[in-house]
Structure formats: C-alpha cells, structure tokens
Design a protein around this nucleic acid. Sequence first.
DNA 1: AATGAATGAGGCTTCATTCAT
DNA 2: GATGAATGAAGCCTCATTCAT
Lengths: 201, 201, 201, 201
Amino acid sequence: MPKIKLENLKQIERDSRRKIVLDSALELFAIKDFRSVTVREIAKHAGVSIGTIYNYYPNLMELFLDVFLDSTEEITRMLDELGKEKPPSLEQLCKFYITYLNDNMTFYQMMSHFMLGGELSYDATRKLDKKMKELMNLMELALLASGRKSNTRVTAHALFSALNGIMISYARYPGKTDDDIRRHTLRLASVIAGVFKTTKV
Amino acid sequence: MPKIKLENLKQIERDSRRKIVLDSALELFAIKDFRSVTVREIAKHAGVSIGTIYNYYPNLMELFLDVFLDSTEEITRMLDELGKEKPPSLEQLCKFYITYLNDNMTFYQMMSHFMLGGELSYDATRKLDKKMKELMNLMELALLASGRKSNTRVTAHALFSALNGIMISYARYPGKTDDDIRRHTLRLASVIAGVFKTTKV
Amino acid sequence: MPKIKLENLKQIERDSRRKIVLDSALELFAIKDFRSVTVREIAKHAGVSIGTIYNYYPNLMELFLDVFLDSTEEITRMLDELGKEKPPSLEQLCKFYITYLNDNMTFYQMMSHFMLGGELSYDATRKLDKKMKELMNLMELALLASGRKSNTRVTAHALFSALNGIMISYARYPGKTDDDIRRHTLRLASVIAGVFKTTKV
Amino acid sequence: MPKIKLENLKQIERDSRRKIVLDSALELFAIKDFRSVTVREIAKHAGVSIGTIYNYYPNLMELFLDVFLDSTEEITRMLDELGKEKPPSLEQLCKFYITYLNDNMTFYQMMSHFMLGGELSYDATRKLDKKMKELMNLMELALLASGRKSNTRVTAHALFSALNGIMISYARYPGKTDDDIRRHTLRLASVIAGVFKTTKV
DNA sequence: AATGAATGAGGCTTCATTCAT
DNA sequence: GATGAATGAAGCCTCATTCAT
C-alpha cells in the first residue's frame, strides 16, 4: 500500500510539473499565435530548459494538443457549472461559448488547426474526438431543454458547427477592434440561438 | 491608342501566364495541404522556375491569397449561375456551398488560415474582404427570397458562419471516409437551411 | 582480516551488480547497433536507472569498452579451452574465430570503433592493448603448432589481421542472408588458414 | 543539338561545383575524423553555405558515400595505372594498397562505417557494391598473374579481406608514431603477399 | 522574362551527463 | 547506492527569398 502511494505521489508530482509547462504555454499563446511559437520560446517562457519540454511531450504537436484538450475540459467544466441548477437556455449557451472563444482565440485556432489537417497520431485523434463528443453532449442537453424533441443529435452537430463558424468568419474583420468583434460575434450567437430555438421540432 | 493596346496585350499575356501558375498551384493543393507545400514544389508542378513564381508574386502568401480569391470568384460565379432565373432556395444554396467546400478543401483551409492569423498586408486584407462581401450579398439575396424581411444582413452573416462552421467541425472525423463526411456535412447543411427557413421573421 | 573480507565482499557484490548491467547491455547490442544505443535504453533494458549506470561507469565509452573487453576475455577463454589437450589446427582456429565474430557482431563493431578512432583514455587504451596481446599469443601458439619456425610473431599479426578483415569486407553483402554471410566468411576463413599453413617457413 | 549542349554544360558545371565541395570535404576529413564532422564545418571549410551542401546532397550520409566512392575510383585508377604494362606482383599490389590506406585513413574509416552498419539506401548500397567489385577484379587479376589457377575469385576475396584487416588491427597502436604504423603495416602487407604467393595452387 | 544556385537563420529534436533527493 | 528529472549544447536539415546570368 505505501508503495502504491509513493508511485501515485510521483505521478502527481510529475503531472503538476507538466501542468506548469502547460499553463505557461497557454499564457504564451495568448500573446503569440501558437503556429509561430518555437520550442525555445515555450521553454524560456516556462522558465525551464528545452529538454524539459521533451521530458513531458514527445514533440511540439502533443504539447499543442494537450493545451487544446485542457481548454476543452475547461469549457466543459464551465458549461457543467452553468447548467448545474437547470440546463442553460440556448441563448445562454451560445453566448457563453462565443464569449469563451473571444477570450481564448488559441482554443479556436487550435481547433481549426487540428481539424483541418494537423498531423495527429491515431491516439491523439481519438483523445481529441472524445473531448469533442463531451462538448457535443452538453449542446444536445441544452437543445433538449429548449424543447426540441427529434433529431437532437444532428441538430446539436449543426448548432456546434454554426457557433464555430462564427469565429472563422469574423475573428478578423478589417478595421475592427477586438471589442467590435466581440460585439458582432455575440450578436451572431444570439441570431444563431434564435433560429435554433424557434424552429418547430 | 495602339500603344495602349500593346500594353493591354502585354498585360493580358502576363495575366494568362500567371493564370497557368495559379491553376497549377490549385491542382497541387488538391493533392497536398497548401500549408506544407513549398515554392519548389509549386514551381516544379507548374513547370516553371522558382524565379518565375517570384516574377508574378512578391511572396508565397500572395500566391496563396490569389488562389483563394480565384476560388471565391468561382463560387460567386457559380452561385450567380444557380440563381440566374430565380434566386435559389436556402436548401439549394446551403447544399451548393457545402458541396463546393467538400470538393475544394483548399478553399476552406485557406479561409481558416487567412481569417485566423495569416499575416496579410493591408492591401490583401482589403481584397479579401471585398470578395467575402460579394459572397455575403448572394447569401442575403437568398434569405430575402426565402421570405425573410428584417435583419437580413446580420442573418446572412449568421448563415454564412453556420455553413463555414460545418466543415471545421466535421472535415476530420476519425474513421470516416470522404463519402461519409460529404453525406454528414450535407445533412448538416440541410438542417442549417431548415432552421434558417422556418424561423419567423 | 575480517575487515578485508568485508571489503572484498562488497567489491564482489559491486562487481556482480556491474556484471548484470554489462550482460544486459551485451544482450541489447545483439538487437541494436551499439553505436545507436542510448544510456536510457541501456538502463531500461537492464532494469536500473540511468544514475546507476553512472555509478558503475564514468561514461558510456567505458561501458562499451568493458563490454568489449569482456568479449575478448570470452574468446580467449574459449580458445584456451579449444587448445587444452593440444593446440588447435590453423583451420580450427580460423573457423572458431570467424564463427565467434558471426555470432557476436558487436564485438567486431566495437573493435573497429575503438581501433579506428574511438576516443579512449590512456588507461583504456592500455587495457585494450593488453587483451589484444593475449589473443595474439594464442594465435602465435597455433602457428607454432602448425610447424612455422620463423617470424612467428609478425605472422601471427598478419593472420589476426587477415581474419579481422574478413568481416569488414563481407559483413554487409547486399542481398545476402545472415546464413549466406556466415557460409562465405567461413569459406574465407578456410582459405586464409590454407595460405598460412602451406607456406614454407 | 545546341540545346543538348547547353544542358550538358549545365550538368558539367554543376558537377564541377559539386566536386569542389567533395574535395574540400575530403581535405577536412584528413584533419578530423569524418564521424565527428558537422555540416557547418564542411560548409565552412568549402567556403559555401550550409544550404549549398544540401543542394548537392540530400543528406550528410550521401556526401560521405560520395567521398568514399571517389576514393575507391581513385584507387582503382591508380591500380590500373600500376598494371598498365604488366600486372603488378602481389607484393606490389599489397604494398600499394596499404600505402594508400595509410595515406587515406578516411577511406578506410568510411569503409568500416558503411560495411558495419552505416544506414545506406538501397541505391547507395548498390553503388557501393559496384565499386568494391571493380576493386576486387583488379586483385583477382594480380592473383592470376601471380600464377594462381584455381579458386581465384574466392582467393581474391580472401586477399582483399586480409589487406583490409591490417589496418583495423594496427591503425591504432598505443605509443606508436604514424611512421611506426606505416612501417609495421607495410611489413604485414609483405607477409600477406608472401603467404598468398607461395601457396600451391 | 526566366532561371535556379546560393543563402543562412532558425526550426525541431536528441542525449550524455549531473545532482538533489 | 539508487533514482530520474533537468539540462542545454549541438546536431541535421528546411525553405522562402535573392540575384547574377
């Protein structure tokens, strides 16, 4: 029993150290597009050596993926929280998600990157898929709560798609400030929520 | 006047040569993710030298942008054609667009790339924006034809977003064939068309 | 006296632990070219930590050398055994040696490595030289037994050289199986034995 | 016709530029063990950029191989020259070869490296094999000229092996000068020549 | 206009060794 | 003695761009 505990401790220690690198990377990506960040920068920003990065991740891609999965978990957790007492309205859900994307562009950039061709291992693809499904489940729950009775799964897909599309279409709008973009995308979120709500089931 | 004509001729010649490079590049991108294509590959595939590429474009990014704008024009042209006699139904419009994206993943990848951080010159951003607006206009027309009376512009934005989001969410679905993906994304296009149509205006 | 005994015991213990690492490494080198083996691999294969390796050896090179010397001792021992009753014939000696090399390519690779530039400490070079001399002595004995009367030392050198050369020339022969190589190298060993035997002294 | 000539010229030009890199590398390897030479060093020594190296060779290994093949050609050429009027005696042949190895340790180191596990492409292995065969042919000719009637091929193999073995066994002899080594290895070459000559056929 | 060889900064990753626990 | 995380120098190689021909 003590032996197991020791091993557990080691694993926990290791995980917490890895988390430091992870969080530091996320911080960095807020400043700089993750696609142009180098290992050197990540290491420097985390205050560790390059080698340490590779102690935790076999390559940069896996670190990126880990950052992404971490964010996905965070969203899921926050959505769970949001719907603790009663499921959120579609309007709430959509606005929450778009707010999150505005606050965490990296999450969105990574999603695009991975979904549109980032070379992932089979294992990584599976992990990615799993997290996305969890997110989808929450969307479906909100749809059910909104009164939809049929085709809830495919409609959840459509809703998820629609929300994701907002950012790709408006994240960069020439001559607009971040605030303009936030306002416009939230407006679009509201429109999306509207069309998905009032539709007869 | 003859002088002008000569210049015109030269310009036309130049443009047609540039078009050869452009088309060849598009061809290449169908085989290989444009983000991993090198100038050497483009030159080789087009049967010209690297230097020639740089005679037509100041850098790779501009070539990519040109390919993208060319595709956007093509879509716009095809949509125009589709609505020549009477504006297309939302269902038609959505299915057409998603079909196009399935057939031209490069277009979609480039859209993501440029919208999510591709470093573009001011000039390039303007050109990009202009083409996107034209596409949006056509979406708005279809919405008007579908009976929508108010908020047509913002709803067109939402529709455009929703369609774009379909691909980012499902272009890579582990264990699915291209055909599965096409079927699923078309299904989602239909759902999107549905929610945008039946909504009270 | 007891104190000495205790120290001896400790030394023996230590030696036996070191031997475990050593044998494990040799095992590993049979699978993987020693030039591309990492400390991590050696440690893992031996079931010890990296640090433990460095408790026994100041650096990787010394471990390699130790493996090599161990092999040399083994050969010498086996040759001694072979000539216990009467010295082996040249044919026997040559075939035995080449068989050993075929079975222990690592030995041969290391010999090349050390002789052709492996950066060895003075001390290491001396140890290496000593073991090689022992091997040479046995070759000389066999030559004497074969009837050679003069220049036995230099001829032993030549014989040793000739045998070593067999492997470098044929260890990699494109399109040949291990068995083909074994057969061919044994054939060459026989030829070498022949020319060294029939020569007038 | 002129077009072909132009292309030929370009190829010749390219080859001669590549030759400059090649010769420079060989020069460098005389100073420093090729196994520890870096691309940067090669580039610097050749007075070109790193990129230029990679214009001529897909990777370092191929450059090493080219250096080696070039040396092999040189030996063959020199041996041809040596036997222009009448085939060289075994003594001449052996001494010539060992002299060459003493003067060009890199050649020998590379031979060991490639034969003992240097990861070569299929194509490279074939090229290597071809050159080795040419060298072998010349050895066989000398054996024939020395009066040997039977088993000339396998004996040529044995002779070649024996000569190669000389260097691996004595290139590094602790406490000996280059001159000592040269003298000793030539002595051994002479012994080898002797045993191969006087053997009954 | 067309060519393509040359450039070289900079990317990712490896790995022997150290040292605090 | 044993451990293994941390280190960071150094390796190989890529590739957009330039420019002399």
